[in-house]
């Protein structure tokens, strides 16, 4: 019950993040909103695991946390270098 309220709060926060992603106005605002959305997804996955009585969801949360980080770094790296392979070439 309490966890349900918390999950609802997290969903509201995710809605705010989507609004920020849609409003922009710059690319970086959207990337930031995506990152924030990912963090909230991790928390929501953890809470949902307890809500369903299946803490195995935590493994998903763990993997999602890492994937979220890597995807944000990849997007920013591509934005900077227009290439994902050559990190040592300074533009």
């Amino acid at each position: 019950m309490i966890y349900g309220v918390a999950a609802l709060g997290l969903l509201v926060a995710m809605l705010f993040a989507i609004i920020r992603a849609l409003l922009g106005p710059t690319l970086m605002d959207r990337v930031m909103a995506a990152n924030m959305f990912g963090t909230k997804t991790v928390l929501l996955l953890a809470v949902m695991g307890y809500l369903a009585g299946r803490p195995e969801f935590l493994d998903l949360a763990l993997v999602y946390a890492l994937m979220n980080f890597i995807s944000i770094i990849a997007v920013l790296k591509y934005f900077r270098y227009r290439d994902l392979g050559q990190s040592r070439v300074r533009s």
Binding site: I2, V5, F16, R20, L23, L43
Partner: peptide, 20 residues
């Protein structure tokens, strides 16, 4: 546990509201 989780969810909403 309930107090901690609810206050955490509340802070998440505050943070997201701040970004708006």
């Amino acid at each position: 546990s309930g107090v901690l989780v609810i206050s955490g969810a509340f802070l998440t909403v505050v943070g997201a509201y701040g970004t708006l």
